[in-house]
Simulated assay, not measured.
Amino acid sequence: MRTVAALVAALSASVASAKNIIVTVGGNTTDNATTVFDPAQVFAQPNDIVIFNFTQGNHTATQSSFANPCIFLDFTTTQHGFDSGFRNAGNGSNVTIQSVPITPDLVNKTLWFFDYNTCAQGGVGGININDSSTETLEGFVRNAVRLNGTDADDNNSSTNSNTSTTGAPRPSGTNTGNTDTGDASRQHVTWGFAAVVPLVIAAFAL
C-alpha cells in the first residue's frame, strides 16, 4: 500500500511541477528577425508545455532540423514535427497560441523551430538546446541565413498566408487558421496530464 501511495505522490508531484513556458511570436522583426521568437531558446521539463503566443504580424512556429533550418521537419526526415501554420495576429488584434507538450520521449531531444516568413533572416529558435553540443542557437541562426538567405529577396509577401520569404515549400494541408490546432500531437506528444490520470488509477488497482 505504501508503494502505491508513493507512486501516486510522485505522479501528483510531477503534474504539479509542470508549467507553461511562453514564447512570444511577433515583435519588431523589421529591424531584427532574430527577435521574432522571444525568447528564442527555452528549457522545458517533462510535462511542461511550450506555448507559442502569436501577438503581432503573420508568422509560424514550425519544427525543423539543425541541418535544414528553414524546411519543415517532415520534408527532410522520417519524423513528424509540429507546425502551427501561418497565424496572422495583425497588430495584436488576433492573438492565438500553438502548444507543444514536452513528453518523456522528447525530454533529451532538441526541438529546433523556425518562422517561414523570417527564417532566412534568422527567425529561428530551439527547445532544450544542449549546451555541451556543437549545435548551438547561434550556429542554427547562421545556418538559416547561410542556407536560405539567398531566398530572402523573393517577391513573396509576409502578409500572404500560404507563402514564405524563405522560398521553402509549405506543408500541404497545413492549418492557416487562427486557432490552436494541436499539430504538436503528430510529434507523439499525446502524453502530459491526460496520460497521468490513467496511471494513477492503475496504481490503485494494484
Rank of each mutant, 00 (worst) to 15 (best):
G139Q: 07
N94D: 12
R87F: 06
S64H: 01
Q45H: 07
F52I: 12
D153W: 11
E135I: 14
T103S: 14
V141K: 10
A120E: 06
T77S: 08
P104M: 10
S93N: 14
Q63H: 04
N143A: 14
T110V: 14
R146M: 14
T166E: 03
F52G: 03
I129L: 10
K109G: 05
N94V: 06
Y116P: 07
F113A: 09
T103L: 06
V95L: 04
S133G: 10
N130W: 08
I71S: 11
S172H: 04
E138Q: 15
G122M: 03
A44I: 06
N175Y: 06
A120S: 11
L137N: 09
S172F: 08
Q45R: 09
E138P: 07
D48N: 04
S65T: 14
R146V: 15
G139T: 03
P169F: 08
G126Q: 06
F140S: 09
P101A: 07
N108G: 13
L147Y: 05
R142G: 10
S132H: 14
S172G: 12
N128R: 11
S158W: 01
A144N: 05
G90T: 09
E138G: 12
F82D: 04
D151L: 08
T60W: 00
L106E: 08
C70H: 02
L147G: 02
G92A: 10
S158L: 00
N53Q: 12
T55W: 00
S84D: 01
N88W: 04
Q63C: 05
L106T: 06
A44P: 02
F140R: 13
P101M: 06
T118Y: 06
G139S: 11
T110E: 08
N143P: 03
H80F: 15
F114T: 00
G139E: 09
